[in-house]
Amino acid sequence: MLADQRRELILAEVERTGAIRISELTELLGVSDMTVRRDLEHLEARGWLRKVHGGAVLSQSSVEESSFEAKSALQQPAKRAIAARALQLVEPHTAIGLSAGTTTWMLARGLQGTEMPLSVVTNSTTVADILAVNAGPHLRVVLTGGERTPSAALVGAIADRAIGSLHVDRLFLGVHGMDARVGFSCPNLAEAQTNQALIDSARQIVVLADSTKWGVVGLANFGKLGAADILITDDGISAEARRVLEDQVGKLIVVPVSEGTLGKAFAGTTTRQREREHA
């Protein structure tokens, strides 16, 4: 197979899945690890993809915002693992915030049907929708209102005013990108401002970000890395990124992707048992 043919296949796979590992490409193409790495460098130099630790992801523009549906197809195992770990931080008789995002949506899915006494504040229409399915009598959902973005976030003055009047114990925050210099960012100026309002409303900030978000910089930033009291990511994060995060965030939690399922997070645990654990 010629180099151009290999690279077309690599790009087609990354566009189809959103991300791919080098080990998968060596098996698919029947070539060496070094050959794949050279092909990835070639494609990255032309802006068609971005190399990450152990593989590659689609290039992300600093200003273009993907739809919720497009984002939800990316990095699903990592997002499930992160959401499963985040579920362990949800405590009964508290108010939590869930920002817009596909990883926070997976966290909300894990709360479906919960009997835990809980209040949830969200600026995400998809999060509110998933929580409405089999909602228990003790689950209160507050939807902020506002203008809807392609990523299903409600933003703008209405959302910001609503959030500014509320206080949550713990905010679970999704991000478009995280970078050592810029911090946390997204492509939408209004969403960045609404995310800042969410941060200001919370006693504790928990950022949920899969490893492909490292090094991505959106148009507008809404906080330095140090704004995160806890950051949960997956084990695809590079050693360099891990060092930076461990130095700057309050607590870094790295979850193995293979073990992350929402079913395991609450499996075999009753509401009363969880309340005793957090007492």
Results as ranks from 00 to 15, higher is better:
V90R: 06
V217Q: 07
A192N: 09
E8Y: 03
T114D: 12
K71Q: 15
L189N: 10
R6Q: 08
R203T: 07
I10N: 09
V155Q: 07
L166W: 08
S119H: 14
D247A: 05
I237Q: 02
A45C: 09
E69K: 11
T103V: 07
P256V: 02
A180E: 14
R16Q: 15
N134Y: 10
R170Y: 11
V90S: 15
F222V: 01
G136T: 07
V36A: 00
L49T: 00
V127C: 09
D129L: 09
S59Y: 14
V36W: 00
V206A: 01
D129T: 08
L219A: 15
H138F: 14
Q204V: 10
A132D: 12
L252E: 02
L98I: 06
L208D: 06
L28P: 04
R109N: 15
V182R: 10
A45R: 12
D179L: 00
T35Y: 05
V141I: 13
L189E: 15
S66W: 15
S66Q: 14
D129M: 06
T149S: 00
S258T: 09
K71N: 15
V36G: 02
N195P: 10
K224T: 10
M106C: 07
D234A: 02
L87Q: 09
L131C: 07
Q273R: 03
C186V: 12
A192I: 00
R140C: 10
D4P: 10
V120P: 11
